[in-house]
Amino acid sequence: MGKEKGDLLQGTLDMLVLKALQLEPMHGWGITERIEHWSESVLQLGQGTLYPALYRLERQGLIRSEWKVTENNRRARYYSLTREGRRRFSDELAQWRRTSRAVNLVLQATME
């Protein structure tokens, strides 16, 4: 199988999920929609990876889930960030900024 467009860097999926939940609790489908929208459809979440990731994050205590009824009267599992999750997100965000800046610096380097 060839590399799909918008394949995520290893480890970034967790960060994106935490980001998607930072604003308000969301169900799994909402998370994929949000990430797709924000990334201008560049990041198409391989949905098979989302649910394992949600389970992993919940087990790590970074998110919690509860069943709620949607506006269309359907039961859905909503995920929300825990305090631990917020802290982890801001750590990862800082780390990401450092790393991506460094990578950009390297890629844009010119002979001086």
């Binding site: 169900h27 799994g28 489908w29 994929t32 949905q47 649910y51 389970y55 919940e58 087990r59 889930s65 069943w67 359907r74 039961r75 859905a76 599992r77």
Partner: peptide, 23 residues
């Protein structure tokens, strides 16, 4: 999480069905 693990797995079918219906 021991209790939640069971709940998570039993809810997985419904969650995925919801996801596909939304799509």
């Amino acid at each position: 999480s021991i209790g939640r693990r069971h709940e998570m797995e039993s809810g997985l079918d419904e969650e995925i069905r919801f996801h596909i219906d939304q799509q």
